[in-house]
């Protein structure tokens, strides 16, 4: 009889301890104060209207660990993302500078752009795809993210760039695109073969002075901002703001841009029509190609 009582007392005591220990962090979490810069915001994604108030609750639940209570990308997990190993730091929403936009460089992205980024996630980073959230939840999050920067009150969203219909990606287009790759000096960062190993690659830093790597086409993964030919067109015509990738909208004509898209596809180990056309052509004409890179290297280098 007596031993049983002792066991019961021990069990009850342990349970009480566990309860208080377990509950303490829960209460602490409730006290987290989220600092926002603006009043309530809305987002418009298709027919769905997102609201920042419910978005705040989702943010606290899903985003705060990395993006932090102040939305500045300094959540408690952020310290473990080492840009030296290619893991980008979480986005700082207080600056309202975004990589993946349909709008020109230096302008705010559309709600759809932000929604797509949440949905798509960012390949090679710790940002997952948030497909498990409903469309409404994601739209609410987009609305809430905007409350971190006053720029959403003082500036207008940019007008999405115009992307003309894609011409055929034949070998002529690919070869013209290759010339663009040389002329626009994409190879300075992305490397002559697109391996992300150009002469400037090692010293690249993002706008917060963290090391950042240029895309390696040989990996063949999807891009941070999508995976279609249209996405690829958009990436170099809008630039990825906050990163070293500039906008080429002022210097590449739409037709030349499509040529460049077609050439870039040949650098990826993917089963694309462009890669197929290129492989067939290179077998017979490969020797005619001038190598990509610095045209005159001093001291006989290269």
């Amino acid at each position: 009889m007596r031993p049983r009582l002792e066991v019961l007392a021990l069990f009850l005591g342990a349970a009480a301890l566990l309860l208080t220990a377990g509950a303490a962090p829960c209460f602490a979490q409730i006290d987290i104060h989220i600092h926002t810069a603006t009043g309530p915001m809305e987002s418009h994604v298709g027919d769905v209207t997102g609201h920042s108030e419910p978005g705040k609750a989702y943010y606290r639940r899903y985003c705060i660990g990395c993006h932090g209570p102040d939305g500045d990308g300094n959540g408690e997990n952020a310290q473990w993302f080492d840009p030296n190993f290619g893991f980008a730091k979480p986005r700082d929403f207080t600056l309202a500078t975004y990589k993946c936009r349909s709008t020109p460089t230096g302008t705010l992205p559309t709600d759809q752009d932000l929604y797509d980024a949440v949905t798509r996630g960012f390949v090679t980073t710790n940002m997952p795809r948030w497909l498990a959230l409903t469309v409404q939840q994601r739209a609410d999050l987009v609305a809430f993210i905007k409350t971190f920067s006053k720029k959403w009150e003082s500036q207008k969203t940019g007008t999405p760039i115009n992307i003309p219909p894609e011409p055929t990606g034949n070998i002529e287009s690919i070869l013209r695109g290759r010339e663009m790759f040389q002329k626009m000096q994409c190879w300075k960062c992305h490397g002559p073969e697109g391996h992300g190993d150009g002469p400037a690659a090692a010293t690249l830093t993002d706008s917060k002075d963290n090391p950042i790597r240029p895309y390696n086409f040989a990996v063949g993964s999807r891009f941070k901002c999508g995976q279609t030919n249209q996405d690829l067109y958009r990436i170099f015509m809008t630039g990825l703001d906050g990163t070293p990738m500039p906008s080429f909208a002022d210097v590449i004509q739409p037709n030349d841009a499509w040529d460049l898209v077609h050439f870039l596809r040949t650098l990826q180990p993917l089963d694309t029509p462009e890669a197929k056309a290129w492989k067939e052509w290179v077998v017979t004409h490969g020797k005619e190609l001038k190598p990509i890179g610095a045209e005159e290297a001093p001291g006989g280098g290269q």
Partner: peptide
């Protein structure tokens, strides 16, 4: 005679980043 990208880093003003190949008109 070669490309530069011009990348000012404001925090209050909008941040843009544009490439400027040789022989292109002033931005």
């Amino acid at each position: 005679p070669h490309l530069h990208n011009i990348h000012p880093l404001p925090k209050i003003n909008p941040e843009w980043n544009k490439s400027q190949p040789p022989g292109t008109p002033p931005l």
